[in-house]
Amino acid sequence: MKVIFLKDVKGKGKKGEIKNVADGYARNFLFKQGLAIEATPANLKELE
């Protein structure tokens, strides 16, 4: 799953980066902790 990092995550990505991560990792950790959001077309447009 592609995500947009909202904060730096050690060993995974830095704020503003778009990366592929495991679905479970994204849903169970990154999204719940507010560290990333899903890289949907709408979210990508907001990032620009």
Rank of each mutant, 00 (worst) to 15 (best):
P41R: 08
E17A: 06
E46A: 14
A39T: 03
D8F: 06
L44K: 05
E17R: 02
K10V: 12
G13H: 12
V21P: 00
G13S: 04
K10P: 15
E38H: 07
A22S: 14
A22Y: 11
K14T: 08
G16P: 01
K2H: 09
M1R: 07
A39D: 02
K15L: 09
A22L: 11
L35H: 04
K19N: 04
Y25Q: 06
V21I: 09
E46K: 11
K19T: 08
K32S: 10
V3T: 01
A36P: 00
L30F: 04
V21Q: 03
K45V: 09
K15F: 06
Y25N: 06
F29K: 06
K45I: 12
F31E: 03
I37H: 03
D23S: 13
L30V: 01
K7Q: 13
G11P: 04
G11R: 05
N28R: 11
D8M: 04
I4W: 03
G34E: 05
K2A: 11
K7D: 06
A26L: 13
E48R: 07
L47R: 08
V3D: 01
E38F: 04
D8I: 03
A42F: 10
L44N: 05
F5H: 01
A36E: 00
F5E: 01
V3F: 00
L35Q: 04
I4T: 02
I4V: 09
K2S: 12
I37F: 03
K45E: 11
E46Y: 11
R27Q: 11
F5M: 04
A22V: 07
Y25M: 07
P41G: 09
K32G: 08
L47E: 06
E17G: 02
V3M: 03
F31G: 01
Q33V: 10
F5Y: 07
V3R: 00
N43Y: 09
F31V: 08
F5Q: 01
T40Q: 04
V9G: 01
L6W: 02
N43M: 11
D8S: 09
D23N: 11
P41T: 10
Q33A: 11
N28S: 10
E46H: 13
A26T: 09
K2E: 10
L6S: 02
L47V: 11
R27L: 14
M1I: 15
G24N: 14
E17I: 02
K32N: 08
K14R: 13
V21H: 01
P41F: 11
